[in-house]
Nucleic acid binder design. Structure first.
Length: 396
RNA sequence: GGGGAGGUUCCCGAGUGGCCAAAGGGGACAGACUGUAAAUCUGUUGGCAAAGCCUUCGGAGGUUCGAAUCCUUCCCUCCCCA
């Protein structure tokens, strides 16, 4: 392993514990088993998770094996990491459904041939009570309570289920079961992964190297990107959505997104930085960023098209091209609130009223603020509700 | 096992008989300003063809003209003692 390659491999990592062990393992020249736990709680992969997946792919390209562990058993517990409350456990059925869509998305990034897909129920459900007791003796309550998340909950007198204490233990046992050489994950997994090392040692195995990638902040710019915070950009979302979401990230995140989502390094990244510091409108950079991201998950053409359309719709306030169509009866009088509701633009009629009152509704560019109004249509019309919601009415 | 404190709307949290669809904050949404950024200001934030009606304060009963608020019972959480 030459040094340059090593640098590339560790690029972007938040921490590698310990780095010299990683070097040593790489020198052995054998395919390493790189473990990544996936949590089947959300059926959608987002850019934050992709950061880790892409690193894993890098390992694969060097001939190593990705060991993906579906936490079907542990999902019944719910990972307490970073949580302030107990996670609702998932049912088997939901887990299975989630995994199906998951695999499809994952192999857009990973090399399926160099991937070993395992379910941790395979070994965890075989543990006997005495096995579990033995496992549990490897960790003390004091150490568990050292964890930020548990500590916080404990001092704030929030409940912690005993099963939640078991979670990190089981995850660590996964490492033992698959004999992992390296465990990859986000920085919030540090504690869990380190426990994996200890457990492997006590099972007489060579401990895994803990390889942590930074957590990508979500659209709110504060919390990590996560389905449950609803601040994510999904890799399967339509281009327009992806583009729009990228445009709405806080400016402070621009560099980070270039780095973590588009893999900009060194000079490339420096150039973006220069542009920002040189007083260029950050919006321009975000346009490039958004285009880059759409290009990555769709195509060059799609990305260009989406960019042009974005500028057209939001900068020049023109109507987007292919908007969803809703059919109405020609000439029939409809109460405007009912129309919005039937068209599915709002969650309730109350919401429709509110938005109309607040001036969020435009029909063919004309603002409508009277929510008692009835209207009828003889020709096609464009409805715009708020900034993002569009609908084309087609009278039949 | 004993003693104490709690469970309120998306979240936190006030509310101890009518003025409560429930203060305040957060979040979210909308409007102004902009660059679908931030900051700021304004408004909205259970449902309904709405000055009215219906559903909501852990669950089920009850008292009352009237209950988030009182009583009974059940479930859940936290703390202290054993």
């Amino acid at each position: 392993m030459i040094d340059e390659g090593f640098q590339r491999l560790i690029a972007g990592a938040d921490s590698i514990i310990p780095e010299n062990e990683l070097k040593k393992k790489l020198k052995e020249g054998r395919p390493l088993r790189v473990k990544l736990g996936i949590d089947p709680t959300a059926p959608e992969i987002h850019l934050g998770f992709v950061v880790v997946l892409r690193k894993l792919r890098q390992f694969q390209d060097l001939g190593h094996i990705a060991v993906l562990i579906v936490g079907d058993f542990t999902a019944r517990i719910g990972d307490p990491s970073g949580r302030s409350k107990t996670r609702p456990p998932l049912t088997d059925k939901v887990i299975k459904e989630n995994i199906k869509g998951y695999a499809k998305q994952i192999f857009k990034i990973l090399d399926e041939k160099k991937t070993e897909l395992r379910y941790n129920s395979e070994w965890l459900s075989k543990l006997t009570p005495s096995d579990i007791v033995k496992l549990a003796s490897n960790i003390t309550v004091a150490r568990l309570l050292e964890r930020d998340d548990f500590e916080k909950r404990y001092t704030q007198q929030h409940p912690i289920g005993l099963h939640e204490f078991l979670y990190p233990l089981f995850q660590a046992y996964d490492s033992v079961s698959v004999r992992s050489d390296i465990e990859l994950g986000g920085t919030d997994q540090r504690w869990n992964h380190l426990l994996g090392r200890e457990l492997q040692k006590s099972f007489g195995q060579e401990p895994q190297v803990v390889f942590l990638m930074p957590l990508l902040e979500g659209l709110d710019g504060k919390r990590k990107m996560s389905k449950s915070y609803n601040n994510y950009i999904g890799i399967e979302e339509p281009p327009r959505e992806q583009f729009g979401k990228v445009m709405s990230i806080p400016d402070e995140l621009i560099l980070r997104y270039f780095h973590l989502c588009l893999n900009y390094q060194g000079e490339e990244l420096e150039e973006v930085k220069q542009r920002l510091e040189g007083g260029e409108n950050p919006m321009k950079l975000k346009l490039d960023l958004a285009e880059g991201i759409v290009r990555l998950y769709y195509s060059e053409e799609e990305a260009k098209k989406t960019r042009e359309e974005f500028i057209k719709v939001f900068s020049k306030e023109e109507t987007p091209e292919d908007i969803e169509i809703f059919e109405v009866k020609k000439g029939e009088e409809v109460w405007i609130v009912e129309l919005l509701d039937r068209a599915g633009l709002v969650d309730s009629r109350g919401e429709a009223r509110r938005m109309i009152k607040q001036g969020a509704l435009e029909i063919d560019g004309e603002k409508i603020t009277d929510f008692t109004k009835n209207i009828s249509f003889d020709d096609e019309a464009i409805i715009r509700l708020g900034k993002k919601r569009f609908l084309k009415l087609v009278p039949r």
